[in-house]
Write a protein that binds this DNA or RNA. Structure first.
Length: 558
RNA sequence: GCGCCAGUAGCUCAGCUGGAUAGAGCAACGGAUUUCUAAUCCGUAGGUCUGGGGUUCGAGUCCCCGCUGGCGUACCA
């Protein structure tokens, strides 16, 4: 629709601007009384040597009888356009707004979540996963070939700490024997380690010693490591499944941590990196405003970033990506600047598509989450408690088998949590107030689900066939139609900028328009029933797609 | 110290690449339900957009200087 209107404008205004410029200038007036679309004419004033008011008036005179517009007005230098309601309704309802774009052949890798295997997932991981999953779906929808990956940080001294605590105090218990979810079971020993460390500082050295044994491939240590990692992974898998995310390929730090040294040494050979007097290999990044970065320690072992250098090569080789996205918190902004620089310096093919999707930290009303102070919000606990609250809300309204209540409760709870985590602009830090996140009113995930269920309910009860034809839409219908028409553009912008928040905010506005329409305009048995059914059908379809792209499942009945 | 990011209503947040009178939700107050799900809708009230300069027809948005807060700045991962 916008294209068509744009073409008309371009035709009449070819002397001042081309179609593309006009498309960019076209905006939505602050008040819908002013019009549906608006073109500010200020920038033409210099070229035409006339006042913006006069220019707008001239254009208005030329356009006023065009069939696409019901009315054209010049107000204070703005050219305001009122779209013909008949045209608006017919066009929006006959357009397939929510169809995926055809394949582009572009390959995109999205890495997200990437937990340590010594403790269960927490709220920060949930924000990460919500963003990662949504971005992957958005890019997929835009026709990209997507590979979702995760790097499990499954080795290192922190892993040895939970292993050591288990070895010393575990008494051979298992998650099964204690009836504890297996990743939580592992995490408990990590916490126990910290507690025991306070009484016994020697434990720190013992953990280091265990790491050395692990690196020396001591069979007993490796066996313990495998057992505990398996517990961690099993627990994670369960959470991933419940939350509704999955990875196409997993990478493990233990497989790659020592690789990449060859790439660095190759860089030394080329003179990109230098060997310092003490034997450490360093990269001098001062030319790019960064510091000196140690890559290989003086004992020859590599630091963490070398593994990321290697992994970038590995991903490029495996997936031939055009773009490689890392969903990682903004505390690692510097790390990714360095990574990108290192890859560029070495002239690697994989350097070009590197894109760090930096997201803000999740804070609690009490401040930052601190695992030591026990203020971390556990992912499983949050999902479980929110599910119970949602289930209670459902019980108040419906009489259903408990199983169905629980099923719906989980869907509602996840909608609440995911929406809360996605609606704030990705790059910004956000405050997560647990008591607000589980609200089911107003600007929330459940509001979106409820709107969807309302639409579904109307369609279920309809007995006549929807009819796609134009009519003189009233203000409520027109508002909904206009919101619907924006969907492809919003998705494109969200995907391009990796900004699910834009789509989340759009979904809410769309639902506000729908709920208003719902309130004001009866559908069933109304004089416009077939047309309104078509409108509700389009709404349900677009909202369903929007929610899918946010990683939120819907309920046909709530 | 240096670097990056943020500061909008009592609270949580929108405000797209500068455009008209700065918007939602929550909380407060007042309304709407014999009718498609009231987890809804409508209304009232609430603002020196952190402070100060600048750029221009026009600045919450761009530039500069402060203030406040967060995060980095490891031979940690």
């Amino acid at each position: 629709m916008k294209k068509e209107i744009n073409a008309v404008l371009a035709h009449y205004m070819s002397d001042v601007a081309d179609a593309e410029t006009l498309a960019q200038m076209l905006e939505t007036p602050p008040d819908e009384q002013l019009g549906d679309l608006s073109l500010p004419c200020f920038s033409f004033a210099r070229v035409l040597k006339k006042s913006p008011q006069a220019i707008a008036a001239d254009f208005a005179a030329k356009l006023q009888y065009h069939p696409l517009f019901a009315k054209v007005a010049a107000v204070g230098g703005y050219l305001n356009l009122f779209i013909n309601r008949h045209y608006l309704s017919e066009t929006v309802l006959s357009t397939s707004l929510d169809a995926p774009l055809p394949p582009t052949g572009r390959s995109v890798v999205v890495e997200y979540c990437s937990p340590n295997t010594n403790k269960p997932l927490h709220l920060g991981h949930l924000r990460n996963m919500a963003i990662g999953e949504s971005v992957a779906r958005l890019l997929d929808f835009q026709g990209n070939r997507i590979t979702k990956t995760c790097i499990f940080n499954d080795r290192g001294v922190h892993i040895c700490k939970s292993m050591l605590a288990y070895q010393l105090y575990g008494q051979g218990a298992t998650p099964q024997s204690l009836g504890i979810k297996s990743d939580h079971f592992v995490g408990n020993f990590y916490v126990l380690f910290a507690r025991k460390l306070a009484e016994n500082p020697q434990l720190e050295e013992q953990a280091q010693a265990m790491l050395a044994s692990w690196e020396a491939e001591d069979p007993a240590v490796r066996s313990l490591w495998q057992t505990m990692n398996r517990w961690a992974f099993e627990g994670f898998e369960e959470t991933f499944a419940r939350f509704g995310t999955a990875f196409d390929t997993a990478f493990y730090e233990s497989n790659i941590y020592s690789q990449g040294r060859a790439i660095i040494m190759d860089g030394v050979k080329k003179g990109l990196f230098t060997i310092r007097e003490d034997g450490a290999v360093i990269a001098d990044l001062s030319a790019s405003g960064l510091d000196e970065k140690v890559l290989l320690r003086s004992d020859g072992t590599s630091v963490y970033i070398v593994q990321d250098v290697y992994l970038a090569h590995l991903k490029k080789e495996k997936f031939a990506y055009d773009e490689s996205i890392y969903v990682v918190g903004n505390e690692q902004d510097y790390h990714f600047k360095v990574l990108k620089k290192l890859l560029e310096m070495s002239g690697a093919q994989c350097a070009a598509g590197i894109r760090h999707l930096s997201y803000g930290m999740v804070e609690l009303p009490e401040g930052k989450m601190k695992s030591r102070e026990g203020t971390v919000v556990d992912a499983d606990d949050l999902i479980a408690s929110t599910t119970q609250l949602a289930a209670q809300e459902i019980r108040l309204r419906q009489t259903l088998p408990e199983e169905e209540i629980q099923r719906r409760g989980l869907v509602v709870a996840l909608a609440a949590i995911k929406y809360q985590l996605l609606k704030t602009e990705t790059t910004k830090n956000m405050l997560f107030n647990p008591s607000e996140a589980i609200r089911f009113e107003g600007d929330t995930g459940p509001y979106l689900l409820y709107s969807y269920a309302r639409a579904a309910s109307i369609l279920r009860k309809a007995t006549v066939t929807p009819e796609i034809s134009g009519w003189d839409a009233n203000p409520f219908e027109a508002r909904l139609l206009k919101h619907l028409s924006r969907f492809p553009e919003v998705v494109a912008t969200s995907a391009k900028g990796l900004m699910p928040s834009l789509l989340a905010v759009y979904a809410t506005e769309l639902c506000q328009a729908f709920n208003q329409f719902f309130h004001e305009c009866p559908v069933l048995r109304s004089h416009l029933e077939p047309q309104r059914l078509a409108l509700v059908t389009q709404f349900r379809s677009v909202l369903g797609r929007a929610l899918y792209l946010l990683g939120i499942d819907v309920l046909e009945e709530m």
